[in-house]
Amino acid sequence: HFSQPLLDIGDASATSIAYANMDVTTSYSAADTALIVQFNEPYASLDSITLTISNILDWSGSSTDIKEFSYTTYMLADYDKNFQIDVFDLAAYLTGWTNGDFSYELGPITGTVPHFIPTPNNVYDLRDVMAFVQMWYWYHQTNSFAMTSLANVGGFLPIEQLDRSLIVTLPEDAVAGQVFIQYPPNSKILSTAADVTTEKNIYLSKNDQNTGQMLVEWADLSQDGMQTVSIDAQSLDRDNSNITIGYTIYGADQQIISRGMQNIELKAVPDEYALHNNYPNPFNPVTTMLYDLPETGYTRLIIYDLMGRQVQTLVDQPMAAGYYRQQWDGRNTKGQMVSGGIYFYQIQTNGFTRTRKMLLLK
């Protein structure tokens, strides 16, 4: 708006990151002395637009200074316009697709990420999925992510460890969600399923091994829905670790049905079976044996003498996957101290058998 009427509205031009020269037209409203600039091309995502207006003449014929205005557009797929692309936007996209609301449509697109130029065609298809996925990847590769503390919604989600897998069980009516994990990177390496991008299922993840942070965000339109999120935990040492898991789960129409944070102990689980050398060796009268179980199974740890006779059974029961240590005090099944000499200890579990030798001194 201008304070005085205009004789000549001058010239207008616009440039941006996505456009070398934008197509604009200008008009003048004498009723409120307003100069109206119309952009005739779709705005690009996260674009910086510079609008230049020159050669304006006021009612007395005097020219005005060149005027420049700068604008920044919102990001494509940032439905809540907070300059983040996260699980809320993924849930919003899913809602738009489900309801046939084309105001949530993203593609087809042209240009380069993040400055995509959308040209919606009132059809939801894989091009919309890929537009969202590319914006998600760009945002999470460009920006750091961190866990925030939010009010709990619903009860705690069931989270259990099965061998090396950490399994988060989702509510039955979940359609989208986020799982965020903080873990000690010097002790554990986390991974999850490969990313999926189809018209019915989006599964995206980012893992920062340097900081010990993993983010998984997903949306599922399939008939059966997504039932669990599974994380694989590889141990770099024999120690259990405390980790923090935060989650936000959405149901239909972008309603949060579960949100919370849990601290759990992640049990260290080896990659392969092993029976290690006992220590000390030679020993008198106590020694320690270490063994590794990558899977749950019935396990036996048995002591034999040089003649192959069973001296003692140290373990004879179902054992969960993990790292274990077991001491032997030099006594047999009757509680009597055995004589000095060479003995063997053997592990038997899930088809794995390994035997090692030790020397008891007297």
Rank of each mutant, 00 (worst) to 15 (best):
Y74F: 13
D11I: 14
L90N: 05
V37Q: 01
I49H: 09
N21I: 08
K188I: 07
L106T: 00
V179K: 06
P5N: 10
S205Y: 07
F132R: 02
L314N: 04
D253F: 15
F116Q: 00
L57D: 14
V168D: 00
T355I: 07
G154F: 12
G177F: 03
Q223C: 04
N143S: 05
T110E: 14
N201Q: 12
G340L: 01
S63M: 07
M226L: 10
N55F: 12
N277I: 03
S165N: 14
D329H: 12
L57N: 13
F283Q: 00
S54Y: 01
T64N: 13
I249Q: 06
F283I: 00
L221G: 06
I9G: 06
I347R: 02
G225R: 04
L170Y: 04
Q254P: 03
M358N: 03
T288F: 08
T112H: 15
P158T: 03
Y71D: 09
Q38W: 09
Q310C: 00
P42L: 12
G351D: 09
S62N: 15
P158C: 06
D125H: 08
G154W: 13
V129Y: 05
R356F: 07
Q161C: 12
I303C: 03
A194S: 12
G10C: 14
T112K: 14
S339H: 13
V338M: 10
Y28T: 02
I264M: 09
S103R: 12
G107C: 06
V338G: 00
L236H: 05
F83A: 12
A92I: 05
P184W: 02
S27Y: 07
Q317Y: 13
N143A: 08
V179F: 09
K206S: 14
Y291D: 07
D11G: 11
F352K: 05
P185F: 07
M130C: 02
F283T: 02
G100S: 03
L57F: 12
E217H: 01
Q209V: 01
K357C: 04
T26C: 15
A268G: 12
P114G: 06
S13V: 08
P185W: 10
A174V: 04
N55K: 12
D292W: 11
N263K: 08
Y323M: 03
V37S: 05
Y250G: 10
I9S: 06
D89M: 09
T248P: 08
L293I: 06
R259Y: 14
R309T: 00
G100I: 01
T244H: 01
A274N: 08
S13T: 07
Q223V: 12
T288I: 09
P294H: 01
W218A: 00
A77F: 09
S3N: 06
Q227I: 07
S205E: 05
V286P: 11
L361V: 14
E265I: 15
K200M: 15
Y43G: 04
A146S: 14
A176Q: 04
N277W: 06
P270A: 13
T248G: 05
R331G: 01
Y19A: 10
M147V: 08
N242E: 15
T72H: 11
F352N: 01
Y183I: 04
Y203D: 05
E272H: 11
W328Q: 03
Y304L: 01
